[in-house]
């Protein structure tokens, strides 16, 4: 609390802030995403027979999507209308949330990769790039929702949009721009350059939508005039 109140100058990060942000992270949604992801990659162990590399790759993608659906709820803040005027900048608070989740995500991804039998495991670096881009996309979507709307908990909309986008990308992307290819496909390298572009674009959007805007945009605003947080 010391870092937040008191002097006018914005203090950096204090231990109390780290701890209180940690408590506001939506751990249940993240946990649900992580558990579903683990279940997905664990499923083939029920059946006998050699694991299929193409199936394993798609299960890893499914698991990454499950975790991303959990991440879509990361920026949900029921007390958002109260935390807008605090002196700690928004990008510091959202950055702290990501910092809380990052080690969990790394641990979880390692566990997911370990669950896939070695002979069926696709190239780890490339798949990690795909998972990273998927997660970054969910975070960017959440940041965009927070930036453009006054909704304190945009998580469900963001998750629905991420799921819809994932299905649309699988269905509608033309053959030469496909993101979902198999390792023995000649387009594998090119597809991962596209994944890298997706990751970079998502990080860029996250950065742009990070700071609290000085003036609220009127786009996607649900509340009528007068109900804007801060006004009586």
């Amino acid at each position: 609390m010391k870092g937040v109140e008191g002097d006018r100058r914005v203090r950096g990060v204090s231990g109390a802030l780290v701890w209180s942000v940690g408590r506001t992270v939506p751990w249940r949604a993240l946990g649900a995403g992580a558990v579903v992801g683990l279940l997905l990659v664990w499923l083939p162990r029920l059946g006998d027979g050699p694991p299929d590399p193409w199936l394993a790759l798609n299960l890893l993608r499914g698991a990454a999507l499950a975790f991303a659906l959990g991440l879509a709820f990361l920026l949900d803040d029921p007390a958002r209308h109260l935390t807008v005027p605090v002196t700690t900048r928004r990008w510091v608070r959202t950055g702290l949330r990501v910092a809380w989740v990052a080690p969990v995500a790394v641990l979880w991804w390692t566990a997911v990769l370990a669950l896939i039998p070695e002979q069926a495991r696709p190239p780890v670096g490339a798949v990690t790039l795909e998972a990273g881009a998927t997660a970054a996309l969910a975070l960017a979507a959440a940041a965009t929702a927070v930036r453009l709307a006054d909704e304190p908990e945009p998580g469900p909309s963001v998750a629905a949009s991420v799921l819809t986008t994932a299905i649309l990308a699988g269905l509608l992307l033309p053959h030469r721009w496909s993101l979902f290819v198999s390792p023995d496909d000649p387009r594998w390298e090119a597809a991962h350059e596209r994944w890298a572009v997706v990751l970079a674009a998502a990080v860029l959007v996250w950065g742009v939508c990070g700071p609290e805007p000085l003036r609220r945009g009127h786009l996607l605003r649900r509340h009528p005039r007068g109900a804007v947080p801060g006004s009586p």
């Binding site: 949604a29 649900a32 997905l40 083939p44 029920l46 059946g47 659906l69 998580g155 799921l163």
Partner: peptide, 22 residues
């Protein structure tokens, strides 16, 4: 809970693939 539905969709889809493959 609001976060259940998207995950359930993912789970149902994968499960249906496994039931037919299994």
């Amino acid at each position: 809970t609001v976060f259940a539905a998207p995950l359930l969709v993912l789970g149902l889809f994968t499960l249906s693939v496994f039931v037919s493959a299994g």
